[in-house]
Amino acid sequence: MVITSVEESKNSKDILLVYIDGSYSFSISREDYISLNLYEEKELTEEDVEYIKNTVNVRAAKYAAVKYLSLKQRSSGEVYGKLKREGYDGDVIEKAIEELQDMGYINDRVYARKFVNDRIKLKPKSVRMLKMELQNKGIEDEIIDEVLREVDQDDEEIALRLISKKFGRYDLRDEKVQKKAYTFLCGRGFSYNLASKVINRIIKEK
């Protein structure tokens, strides 16, 4: 097994792509590449390659992930995306995330609870929209459904509170105001039918 070529990653100048016997083998940080005394035409054993992939690279990925996590709490999906953009291989990322989960650095259930609670307090949205946002963060559906069941949010009451707060001083019988109210609620993930029900309810109560 011989290193036949080395390329700089398009994602990061600090990551190098190493090719062995003409085929891509692994990515490695420039720093680790130098410290391990790697170079083109150097011979490596299978044990050398496994050590680089499963120890050196996982350690580097964990370090990069912890640095990213130090800014604020992140989901496993966000960490995966960040490391992937930095040029780490998928199997290395998965192993690094698994180890960080075991260490308590990453916890999607805790992340989802905080995300939902913050949304409810600061920017309420429909259950459907909350689920979509969490899915985009890479949270598993099982965790999302569990967290949303804990919250037990009533979409109609949330929508009613939002409209009352934002459009309370306006006449919702006015077509222009009503159109803005529909757009506002649909933008927060509420269905047209629910928006119509809430708006008509406010009009009748007035």
Rank of each mutant, 00 (worst) to 15 (best):
V151L: 06
L44M: 05
K67I: 12
S29C: 07
K53L: 07
D174G: 01
F190A: 07
R109L: 11
I202V: 04
N200A: 05
L71P: 01
M103D: 15
E43L: 07
I34H: 08
R161I: 11
L16S: 01
K13N: 06
K84E: 07
G90V: 03
M1I: 09
K123Q: 12
L16W: 04
E142A: 15
Y88H: 00
A65P: 02
N193Y: 14
V2T: 12
V147C: 06
D91I: 10
G189R: 04
E175I: 07
F167N: 03
E47V: 12
Y68T: 03
L36M: 12
Y51H: 02
T4C: 03
E41T: 11
M103G: 09
L130M: 15
R109H: 05
G187K: 05
C186S: 11
Y192G: 02
S196K: 15
S196G: 06
V147Q: 09
S9M: 07
Q73D: 14
Y33F: 15
I15K: 04
G168M: 08
D48Y: 07
F190W: 09
Y80S: 10
E40C: 11
I143V: 15
M132A: 14
N193G: 10
C186R: 15
L194N: 01
L71I: 15
L100Y: 04
V58G: 00
Q135I: 08
N117G: 01
F26I: 07
R188C: 02
S164Y: 09
I199L: 02
V6P: 05
V147S: 09
I20P: 05
I52A: 01
Y182A: 06
A181W: 00
G87V: 01
V18W: 09
E98H: 11
D152C: 08
K125G: 13
E94W: 04
Y63K: 14
I199H: 00
R161W: 12
S126K: 11
G77D: 02
V18M: 11
L148Y: 10
G87R: 00
K72H: 04
E98R: 14
L16Y: 14
L16I: 04
E94I: 06
E205K: 13
I199M: 03
A112I: 00
E175W: 03
E146Y: 15
K13T: 07
R201P: 00
Y24G: 02
N136D: 06
K72V: 00
S196L: 08
I143A: 04
E205Y: 10
L194F: 05
L122G: 10
Y192W: 11
I93F: 01
V49W: 00
E98L: 09
Y39Q: 11
K176D: 04
F167V: 10
S12N: 15
L17P: 01
S12R: 10
V58M: 00
Y88V: 00
T4Y: 02
E133S: 09
E31D: 15
E98M: 06
